[in-house]
Simulated scan of single mutants.
Amino acid sequence: MTSTRARIVLVRGDITEQTVDVIVNAANSSLLGGGGVDGAIHRRGGPAILAECRELRASQYGKGLRTGQAVVTTAGRLPARHVIHTVGPVWSKTEDRSALLASCYRESLALARTLGAETIAFPAISTGIYGWPIGNGADIAITTARSHGDAPLREIRFVLFDEPAYEAFERALTT
């Protein structure tokens, strides 16, 4: 049986405006909201997302979500069916955490497939406040998407907030 790979698409814009089956949140381990993409998703999605995140913390994620893991909640008022929350690693000059960053993408894609999602939108995980270099982050994201973008996924969308991020992902996509 032949595997069908999803198409990889780059978009410059706001991830909270993407009409897809799944929006991926670059969450912090608390799952209770924060700054950047995480804060934007919680604000636009409304209280239903936070309520489910609190339920997750009260049950199996009492100590928070570990780096590289992924968990799903409702999308609330977002134009999506689900939000997958994943915790990216903080960049380190002295420790290679690339496998943890790849795990964020891989685990999110696996969870999306179990949900029957056909479309998924990712931010550039860990490349904001967590300091991951955008070029390397783009390479890891694209490589992982190419390797794990199986059916039923039809489209893996990377939504990049600014031009330097878009250009880095474009370079990664064409190599």
Rank of each mutant, 00 (worst) to 15 (best):
3 S>Y: 11
3 S>L: 14
3 S>Q: 15
3 S>D: 12
4 T>E: 13
4 T>Q: 14
5 R>L: 15
5 R>P: 04
5 R>T: 11
6 A>T: 02
6 A>V: 00
6 A>Q: 01
6 A>I: 01
7 R>L: 13
8 I>K: 06
9 V>I: 14
10 L>P: 00
10 L>H: 01
10 L>R: 02
10 L>F: 08
11 V>Q: 14
11 V>L: 09
11 V>N: 09
11 V>W: 07
11 V>M: 13
11 V>F: 03
12 R>C: 05
12 R>A: 12
12 R>F: 11
13 G>C: 05
13 G>L: 07
14 D>V: 08
14 D>Y: 06
14 D>T: 11
15 I>K: 08
15 I>H: 07
15 I>N: 02
15 I>V: 13
15 I>W: 09
16 T>C: 14
16 T>F: 06
17 E>A: 14
17 E>T: 12
18 Q>A: 11
18 Q>C: 07
18 Q>H: 00
20 V>K: 01
20 V>P: 00
20 V>Q: 01
20 V>W: 02
21 D>M: 12
21 D>Y: 11
21 D>S: 11
22 V>Y: 08
23 I>S: 03
23 I>W: 04
23 I>T: 01
24 V>I: 14
24 V>M: 13
24 V>N: 10
24 V>L: 14
25 N>G: 08
25 N>Y: 02
26 A>H: 03
26 A>V: 02
26 A>K: 06
27 A>D: 00
27 A>H: 00
28 N>S: 04
29 S>N: 13
29 S>L: 09
30 S>I: 07
31 L>S: 10
31 L>N: 09
31 L>M: 15
31 L>Q: 09
32 L>P: 08
32 L>Y: 11
32 L>R: 11
33 G>E: 02
33 G>F: 00
34 G>K: 05
34 G>T: 05
35 G>D: 06
36 G>P: 08
36 G>S: 03
37 V>L: 03
37 V>R: 09
38 D>K: 05
38 D>A: 08
38 D>Y: 08
38 D>S: 09
39 G>E: 04
40 A>G: 07
40 A>K: 08
40 A>C: 06
40 A>I: 06
40 A>E: 07
40 A>P: 06
41 I>K: 08
41 I>E: 03
41 I>N: 00
41 I>F: 01
42 H>D: 11
42 H>C: 09
42 H>M: 10
42 H>I: 10
43 R>D: 10
43 R>L: 10
44 R>A: 15
45 G>H: 05
45 G>N: 05
45 G>C: 03
47 P>K: 14
47 P>C: 05
48 A>E: 15
50 L>Q: 09
50 L>K: 12
50 L>M: 10
51 A>F: 05
51 A>M: 10
51 A>I: 07
53 C>M: 05
54 R>F: 03
55 E>P: 04
55 E>C: 09
55 E>S: 14
55 E>T: 15
55 E>F: 10
55 E>L: 15
55 E>A: 15
56 L>G: 03
56 L>E: 02
57 R>S: 01
57 R>I: 03
57 R>D: 02
58 A>N: 08
58 A>Q: 12
59 S>C: 07
59 S>F: 09
59 S>Q: 12
60 Q>T: 13
